[in-house]
């Protein structure tokens, strides 16, 4: 029988480091990590933290592509590190960097304040069209009404689409793909009546027209949301509202 040590595979993980208290700028550090075929890039990073360098910082939580915490640039592409496997890069080296287009807090941890601010600005909750009392019962919805927004509700706020969006990279004022998908999710919900308030975000100079229809946002989304589609639909809605706002009653943005 073959010696276990001999069959053990190693991969080089090149990690972008930045510790603001001691580094003047980010730099790449290479770690040699033993791995098995079922190990994700996240598990590789956890190995580094546990056995090679405890100071390495990165965000993670669920390990199953649902929490949206572990987005990173892996070999230059925005991906969830829990959903990306080391075996796919072996025998080459895999480079892991902080998500593009965001300031780095520390190592692979980015500052996401900009996203949170924008998220709050779109009121990401249902603003009841016709408020109901408890006695009136729940807000009912048909399957067809649910289908209109369902895919957009799968967003897990992982920010991969922001790291993919060249327009967000050029101008971080741009509201961006993920927020547009979430905004659309509520605006087209049959129970919601808040579209007119949210359309101010769509219509603004920082709004939907900064998009140049690249479509990479939808390609990198780990939850098969199509933010580019939400953006496109809202370009049409915003243009319609722009030209028809004087002839339609208030709230014509819908």
């Amino acid at each position: 029988m073959a010696d276990v040590a001999e069959t053990r595979k190693f991969i080089e993980i090149e990690v972008l480091r930045y510790r603001p208290e001691q580094d003047s700028e980010p730099f790449l550090q290479i770690f040699e990590v033993p791995f098995t075929d079922d190990m994700s890039v996240l598990q590789g990073l956890q190995y580094i933290k546990d056995y090679l360098d405890g100071s390495l910082s990165f965000r993670w939580s669920c390990r199953m592509a649902i929490c949206g915490s572990c987005g990173m640039m892996i070999d230059g592409k925005p991906r969830l590190s829990c959903k990306t496997f080391l075996r796919d890069f072996h025998p080459g080296r895999v480079r892991v960097e902080a998500l593009a287009h965001f300031p780095i807090e520390r190592d692979l941890v980015i500052v996401m304040d900009d996203f949170i601010d924008k998220l709050e600005s779109i009121k990401p909750y249902i603003i009841a069209k016709e408020p109901r009392t408890l006695e009136q019962g729940e807000y009912l919805q048909t399957p067809a009404e649910r289908d209109v927004y369902e895919q957009f509700s799968s967003c897990i706020n992982c920010l991969l689409c922001y790291a993919a969006c060249p327009q967000y990279g050029l101008n971080p004022e741009f509201v961006g793909p993920g927020i547009m998908a979430l905004l659309h999710r509520y605006n087209v919900d049959s129970r919601d009546g808040g579209a007119a308030q949210r359309m101010d975000v769509v219509n603004a100079e920082e709004g939907v027209f900064n998009c140049t229809a690249v479509g990479y946002c939808s390609e990198v989304c780990p939850k098969h949301v199509d933010p580019a589609n939400a953006v496109n639909q809202n370009k049409t809605l915003s243009a319609k509202d722009y030209f028809l706002r004087f002839v339609t009653p208030k709230g014509g943005a819908r």
């Binding site: 601010d117 924008k118 709050e120 600005s121 004022e173 101010d200 975000v201 219509n203 603004a204 100079e205 920082e206 709004g207 027209f209 370009k235 915003s238 243009a239 722009y242 030209f243």
Partner: peptide, 16 residues
């Protein structure tokens, strides 16, 4: 939370 900015006049150019 920041308020929405000035309305864009992009729809004119985008429509054309």
């Amino acid at each position: 939370m920041k308020p929405a900015g000035k309305r864009s006049n992009a729809p004119i150019f985008w429509s054309l």
